[in-house]
Simulated scan of single mutants.
Amino acid sequence: MGIGIDIEPCAPLPSELDPLVLTADERWRADAGSAEERGLRTRWVLSAKEATYKAMYPLTRKALEFSDLEVLWGPRGFVSVLRCPAPPFPEGTSFAGHSAAAGGYIANAVALRPAW
């Protein structure tokens, strides 16, 4: 079992951080809208990846790059997909997460459940 929580200010990230934080597919999906909207989406993706990493790290002890996770958003939160093996998780493992915004902050959380 692992739990990861990340809280960030609800403020856009500078566009020069996009190549560091976002994969090519994430950049393509985040490209619509104003510069401020793109920056906010990048901040959400960063936070989702951080929450996923924090949940995984106690089990993997592997330092991941932002490009090692792909974040997909849906109506109930997000899914982070592992793009490389990080034992005990094989490449392609998906982790479900939840998002919220309040009081000028965004929060993302991931809880890893044991596979029984």
Rank of each mutant, 00 (worst) to 15 (best):
Asp31Glu: 11
Arg38Tyr: 02
Ala101Tyr: 10
Phe89Ser: 01
Leu40Asn: 11
Glu26Cys: 10
Asp6Ser: 14
Ala51Tyr: 06
Ala107Leu: 11
Leu20His: 10
Asp68Val: 05
Tyr53Val: 14
Leu59Met: 13
Phe66Ile: 09
Ser67Asn: 04
Ala30Ser: 09
Gly74Asp: 14
Gly33Arg: 14
Glu65Arg: 14
Glu70Ala: 10
Phe95Asp: 01
Ala100Trp: 06
Leu64Trp: 02
Glu16His: 13
Leu82Lys: 04
Ser47Cys: 15
Pro114Thr: 08
Ser47Ile: 08
Ser99Leu: 11
Glu50Arg: 03
Asn108Trp: 02
Ser15Cys: 12
Ala32Thr: 15
Pro87Thr: 12
Gly104Trp: 03
Ser99Ala: 07
Glu16Lys: 07
Gly92Trp: 08
Ala32Ser: 15
Leu17Ser: 05
Ala111Arg: 08
Leu72Ala: 13
Pro9Lys: 13
Gly92His: 08
Asp18Tyr: 05
Ala107Trp: 03
Asp18Thr: 04
Leu69Ile: 08
Thr60Trp: 10
Arg76Gln: 14
Leu46Trp: 10
Gly104Tyr: 03
Phe89Gln: 01
Glu70Ile: 02
Ala48Pro: 00
Val79Phe: 10
Gly74Leu: 05
Gly92Lys: 10
Gly2Trp: 00
Thr60Lys: 09
Ala111Gln: 11
Asp25Glu: 11
Leu59Tyr: 09
Pro88Val: 05
Met56Ser: 09
Ala11Leu: 15
Ile106Phe: 06
Ser80Phe: 02
Arg83Tyr: 05
Leu13Asn: 02
Gly74Ser: 13
Pro114Ser: 12
Ala32Ile: 13
Lys54Ile: 03
Ala109Pro: 08
Gly92Cys: 12
Pro88Cys: 07
Leu112Gln: 04
Asp6Ile: 08
Glu37Phe: 07
Trp73Ser: 15
Thr93Gly: 00
Ala35Met: 11
Tyr57His: 06
Val71Trp: 04
Pro58His: 07
Ala96His: 06
Pro58Asn: 09
Leu22Ser: 01
Gly33Met: 14
Thr23Met: 00
Ser15Trp: 12
Arg83Asn: 12
Gly92Glu: 12
Ala111Thr: 11
Lys49Phe: 07
Leu112Met: 06
Ala101Asn: 05
Leu13Phe: 07
Arg27Ile: 06
Ala24Ser: 08
Lys54Leu: 02
Ala30Asn: 06
Pro114Glu: 14
Arg43Gln: 13
Lys62Asp: 13
Glu16Val: 08
Ser94Lys: 08
Met1Trp: 02
Val71Leu: 09
Met56Cys: 12
Arg83Val: 09
Asp68Trp: 03
Ile7Trp: 04
Met1Leu: 09
Leu46Gly: 03
